[in-house]
């Protein structure tokens, strides 16, 4: 117990800082991937074959590529080869590249979650929208997607939870986040190794559990009555 307390003395502020990095990665990547995923979903249900093909290709390629590779690619290729500098702050640059990588990856999953929501909307809704003279985009935006989102809250929640946990992969993109710190701590404080694991795991559980509960509540509350 004393050993564990001294771990906190030694690493406490870094633990909080690192985990804060995971939460920030989650927030920005969730926002960006939701927007990108929505655009992809619109492409996939659009009447234009080339857009549909692009959306399908994006989803199938990205979904089947390991996240580590996407993030490593971001750092090694975008930064290393093309010298992509979003900012002059070295660490912040890696952080932003990681957000881009996480967003590109999870957009594919948000797209599919939203599409599963689209499948809960009866075909007649789209036909009625077209019949009053709405063209594809307004029909999608005003009639289909609002219902699709409400039917897709559970699968979108699952994507969000996966995203939270996947922020630990950002270490592959040289971001100082919690799983990186965990490795460091394990190296120097092997005496409390198991407790280090449990602590980090617990931090994720504390964040994920309420989100899961919120998602369940929302998906019931917002369900479209038919």
């Amino acid at each position: 117990m004393e050993g564990y307390l001294s771990l906190w003395d030694e690493y406490g502020s870094r633990i909080m800082e690192s985990f804060w990095a995971n939460l920030q990665l989650t927030f920005w990547a969730a926002l960006a991937s939701l927007v990108l995923g929505t655009i992809l979903a619109i492409m996939r249900i659009s009447p234009i074959p080339s857009l549909r093909a692009f959306g399908a290709a994006y989803v199938n390629i990205i979904r089947n590529t390991p996240l580590t590779i996407i993030l490593t690619f971001g750092v090694l290729v975008l930064f290393g080869v093309f010298q992509l500098k979003l900012t002059n702050d070295f660490d912040l640059n890696f952080f932003q590249i990681a957000i881009i990588g996480l967003s590109i990856y999870h957009a594919a999953f948000f797209c599919e979650a939203i599409r599963s929501g689209v499948n809960t909307v009866p075909l007649g809704q789209a036909e009625a929208a077209r019949a009053i003279g709405l063209s594809f985009l307004p029909a999608a935006w005003l009639v289909i997607l609002p219902q699709a989102f409400r039917g897709a809250i559970a699968p979108m929640g699952n994507v969000l939870i996966a995203l939270i946990k996947n922020t630990t992969v950002a270490i592959a993109g040289s971001v100082a986040e919690i799983s990186g710190l965990m490795k460091t701590m394990l190296e120097y404080r092997a005496d409390v190794g198991v407790l280090i694991f449990l602590t980090v795991a617990l931090m994720f559980v504390i964040v994920v559990l309420p989100i899961g509960a919120l998602v369940t509540w929302l998906s019931k509350r917002l369900a479209v009555a038919r």
Binding site: P122, Q125, E127, A128, V143, Q147, R150, V224, R226
Partner: peptide
Amino acid sequence: VFQSFNLFAH
């Protein structure tokens, strides 16, 4: 006007 009404449910 459709058989199944198709009012916008939301």
